[in-house]
Amino acid sequence: MATEVGPTPVKAPASGGTPIHHGPKGVGEDNQILSQGRWAAWLLAPTIIALAIVIVYPIISAIVMSFQKDAGLDPATGLFTAGGPAGVQNYVNWIAQQCAAPAGGTVACPPGTLGAQFWSATATTFFFTVVTVALETALGFWMAMIMARTFKGRSLVRAAVLVPWAIPTAVTAKLWFFIFAFEGIANKLFNTTILWTGSEWPAKWAVIIADVWKTTPFMALLILAGLQMIPAEVYEAAKVDGASAWQRFRMITLPLVKPALMVAVLFRTLDALRMFDLPYILTGGANNTTTLSILVINQIRQGFNSAAALSTITFIIIFLVAFIFVRFLGANVVEQSGATGKGKK
């Protein structure tokens, strides 16, 4: 211990007396990392094994399934056909919107079938994602700026934003379904007679409004946490130097809150791309509100392997978006959350 100059030389509990140090690189550092590594491996093993069982195994088996033919009745002969390797046929079918033809081979899927909905579902998913995340970011930023100010009743506002967040999405969907009912309060308040869940654009906006209501608080709280990291002195110095409110916002608030903002936008984007509960309950996926997740669920009972191919496509899309965020837009999630430094906070 005498050679240690680290600020927090500590012992791990129940480590059987193995000294574990947090300190700058020094004599014996490699040995420490080695022993900490072994200790860490034991501690992490249960989590890694559990996640391997509940995530990695299903993913691999989904990928394996996606290259298999779905067993079922052959539309041409009416006979049961067994599955078998399908190559990339399932993927091709989704992307080219092809269905098995009665005469063998494939034809373009007839309108209305699940196979004909891939691109519209993809477009709907991205439309929902872009619109909801943009609205939530703008509204969330505005809410966060308000909650960052000091005024009487601030804690009340901070408590109130947690209410939409705490309500389960399934309940949220039913609640907005009722609000948007033909004789419901929305039509009454705005003096309209819109059949909200009955046609395409009102149905889309119903989903968007409900989603924005439910998830803006999360966004606002993440941005607020970022705002509170900015020291007040910075603003005061800028004020003394004569910076206007807009300049202070653009030159101080935005750049300093950007890391937290990017993480919040990334989280919300990935969440919106897998949107399921809200449109599934609110509109049943009707009127072009079917997202990719809903399409997968509808496909499951018509053929596992084809559904597995679609879910793999969905997964790849989400993965690519996450990659673009982290790689090109600087949403550094791991360093944001993982930076312990060496011994210092």
Partner: peptide, 18 residues
């Protein structure tokens, strides 16, 4: 850490079929 974070963002539909 990245693996665990990625896991929490994982789409449920990717698990449901298998």
């Amino acid at each position: 850490l990245g693996f665990i974070l990625g896991a929490s963002m994982f789409p449920g539909v990717a698990l449901i079929t298998p």
